[in-house]
Design a protein around this nucleic acid. Structure first.
Lengths: 216, 216, 216, 216
DNA sequence: ACTTAACCGAGACGGTACGTCAGGTCTTAAA
DNA sequence: TTTAAGACCTGACGTACCGTCTCGGTTAAGT
């Protein structure tokens, strides 16, 4: 969240309740007004807080929304549904469900759009929202390895690359399906997606690529 | 582009040159100012055109940027690189190259962000930008079938679902890699992506895995 | 009215009906929209005429309204009510009646306001609207002289000055009463006004002005 | 000026200096650009103030100019020139001098023109500018009564009517002379005007001349 | 009847100001 | 020192009107 200067000892302390109220008001505003319609004046009014209070804690709309949205995605958990495929489907459906909430799609896409020209913001989005969800991929793989569905890691570097790839594919596909194609990422779709993803992960090395090009 | 009513026979005709100038100015503005920094006043000034002319043809920033960005993605072609895998890699890299251009990422994410609260806009984005690129998937599959890399279609409905799925996965993965993860979608990445995608497509595994069962 | 170039012999002649329609539409527009609300596009539409036609004949809103309003004041006539006082009262009431019509007050004050910074326009207002109403003062005086109520003119220069003064006093008082004070210039008021005006005109020379200052 | 709600105790108080700067800038703008050329953007820029500050205090151009012009006419004073006639001449010349200033004529006629379609505005013009100058008529009469030039009041209602009439005649005549006839309201003219006005006031002629009868 | 030139309607065009609104800073008094 | 309140500057918004222009098409006078 925002940088808290612990050096200040004197004076009136900041209201702790205000933070939560502001973030909730932000999400409420996103639901009703969308990203571009959201104004900090409105957030302040909703939270029963002065605009100054808000600017004292966040540097602007971007950062505020990042924090407000991040809390949403932290709800994701990895369910144990008995198999790797089912676990993947479960996470995908959870992710799709969150992305269906208006505050999530508005807020996320808004900050992503801004982050195309603001590296600091993109980094903040990545660390506050995206990167921390890789825990799901890691946990899923670990559980699959326990079950014997996947072999243990060999090359740690290669392993990290694969996690990134899977993450981009999963998150990207759900976002594109939901926000661009405008169709529901439902169970059937999740099954099809998981099918393709899993086969690629579990099949060692193909012969379809022309000679001279190995894949993994 | 905007709907042209051919019923108007009288009056001064609209300048054809203005359209091109405006769209080019829009892209230029996106490069320099980004989505949120782009103003229609600035576009008009760049294009040497009055603001009213702009509003006469487009209803606002959203629609204008959709048209301006759509022209970028129409540059995509399907190269014949000898195999399905190589073809996919080629298209993915082309797509990544376009998405690396600032006007493309700014503009695309900007309109997508807005479209989360505007169904008409999302439909416009879909038809003007996204949907027409499915031609690449269709052409790639046809060529692969000629080569014998893929079997001919059996169920047309299932086939359409697969095209959609592939498209969401490909477009989504590249976008997420480029814009969120912030890492380059380079040849190595494209190879990994293609590997996973292709195996899933070519392995005749059971498509209907019951929930809770393993896949491979 | 507008300058007509008689040098043009060939080609389609201007529609005579259009002029009248335009002036009528102008007055109609003044009634409904007022001076500042009046637009030439609206006038053109009301008159069933293209904007170009309008600009071909008048150079702008100012001149058009001058012509449109001038026609209103040309309705003034000098009634023969038997005495100078009654004649003055009659004309004053007529003038007040015209000035009560919204198109008259709107239009007149509008062009007068503009004319404070445009000498050519003020001259046009004076010659087209104001000056020609001095005929009423002249006719009234002539009739009073016939009746023997006023002596014949002695000094023609002095006479002209007096006509101007009376005119300014009469027109100014009615305008101020109607438009600024916002009270009706009714019969009682006209009687009071006429009383003061006439006494001053018919009394030869006062002694109230301090020595060394003669009035007439 | 604008109504100040003294109930507001909290928040940053309005800058008092801004008011004066804005009104001065308004007059400056009137001088250079005239009524129709005056824009609130320009006024704001001149006053070194944001447009919003301006709109926060005045509802529009009309009200702003009323206040700006009102200050001009508050400069009028009643000089003691020894006799009623001389006093009247003095005030008339002062009024003419103010009306000769471009900001005064532009502004006054502009708001009067607008007020022909806006009763609230006319009332504002009347109370803020016109009505308060009746003090001059009242003071002049009182002084003349002290001198014995005029008898004391008999009927207070009749007295008020006379004040109104004198005021309409004086103000109207000067305005018409200056702005419509376009000739200077100089000493000679003022003498002539005063002559007529005073005779009417001091001659105890029958006030109720039946219509159709001669006066003198 | 046939030029021919000015006329006409429609409406696009480059400008400019409008009045509103959001962003972000500041100045108060109170807590 | 923080807080609520709200005034402040900046700058874009989308609209409206101005006066000009460019079309296709019309209408008389002069041949």
């Amino acid at each position: 969240m925002q940088s808290r200067t612990p050096a200040s000892r004197t004076g009136r302390p900041r209201s702790a309740a205000a933070d939560a109220a502001i973030l909730a008001a932000t999400r409420e505003g996103l639901v009703e007004l969308g990203w571009s319609g959201l104004t900090l004046s409105d957030v302040a009014a909703r939270a029963g807080v002065a605009k100054t209070t808000l600017y004292r804690r966040w540097s602007g709309k971007h950062e505020l929304v990042v924090d407000a949205v991040a809390e949403l995605f932290d709800e994701l958990v990895l369910p144990d549904r008995g198999s790797l495929a089912a676990d993947i489907e479960g996470v995908v459906l959870q992710f799709a469900a969150i992305l269906n909430r208006p505050e999530a799609k508005c807020g996320l896409m808004g900050v992503v759009a801004e982050s195309t020209r603001d590296d600091a913001l993109r980094e903040r989005v990545r660390t506050s929202i995206v990167e921390r969800q890789k825990r799901l991929v890691l946990a899923g793989r670990a559980r699959a390895q326990e079950r014997g569905e996947l072999p243990p890691e060999a090359d740690p570097e290669e392993s990290a690359r694969t996690v990134d790839l899977i993450f981009d594919m999963a998150a990207g596909a759900v976002v594109h399906r939901t926000l661009v194609s405008g169709k529901p990422a439902d169970e059937e779709w999740a099954r099809g997606f998981t099918h393709i993803l899993l086969l690629g992960l579990t099949t060692p090395a193909p012969n379809l690529t022309p000679p001279g090009k190995t894949v993994s």
